[in-house]
Amino acid sequence: MKPPRPVPKSRRLVWVGLLVGACVLLYFLPPFHVVPLEAARSEAEAGVFDAAAFVETFWEDRLLKSADSAVDAGELLAAFEADPTDAVQRFGHRLGLSGSSSYFVSGSGHIFEIEDGNVTIALQDEGGAAVVIETGPLFGNAVRDGSGLLDVSDFPNSQDFNALSSEINRRVEERVFPLLRETAAIGVAVRFIGGVEIADVEKDVPPLRLVPVVVEFP
C-alpha cells in the first residue's frame, strides 16, 4: 500500500486563500441578518402609511392655505352654463383617464333650505339653490382630487392614496359637520370652501354638491 502523498504547500495556500475570500465576502454581504423580534416588528410598523398623520399635516399646512386658489362658486356655475368643456379645462382636475372632474370651490350666500340633512345654499344676490351640502356619511374624493394638491404618482401603493380620501371625509364629518348642523337655519349667512366632484358636467350641475373644508357663519 502506497503512503498518502503530502498536499503541496502552494495548493494549501490556494484553499486557504479561497476560504479567507469567502469569509470576507460573507462578512460584507451576509446572506441573512439576525434582529430582535421587537425591532423587526417596529420596523414593519414604521413602514405602514399613516393616513391620519398625513391628513393632519396636509389639512393645516396645505389645504387651508390654498383657499385663495379656490374658484368662486358663482363663477364656476356661470362657466358651466356658458361652456361645460371649457369650464372643466379651466377649473377642473381629472384623475388620470377619468370622465369625472373635481373642483376646489369657495363662496358665500345664505341658507335657502334644510331637508333630510341636506343644507342648500343660495349665493349672494341670487335666489335659487346653487350649492348643496349633504351632511350624511361622506364618500368619494371631492376634496382630495378637487384641491389639485395631491398626485397619485407620489404614492407607491395606491391603497395609501385612497386611504387619504377616507381620512379627509372622516375629518369633515367630525370637524365641519357638527358646526353646520348646530348653526344652520334658513336665512342664515354662510361662507364656505370645499371640494366638488362632478361625474357628468352636462347633466349634474347645478347645483354644486360640496364637501366642505371650511364653513363659517359671519
Binding site: 384623475l95 388620470g96 383617464l97 377619468s98 370622465g99 369625472s100 397619485v152 404618482s153 404614492f155 395606491s158
Partner: peptide, 10 residues
C-alpha cells in the same frame, strides 16, 4: 410619463 394613471370605473 406620469408614473400612475388611474382609469375611471363605472
Amino acid at each position: 410619463f406620469p408614473q400612475k394613471t388611474p382609469v375611471d370605473v363605472e
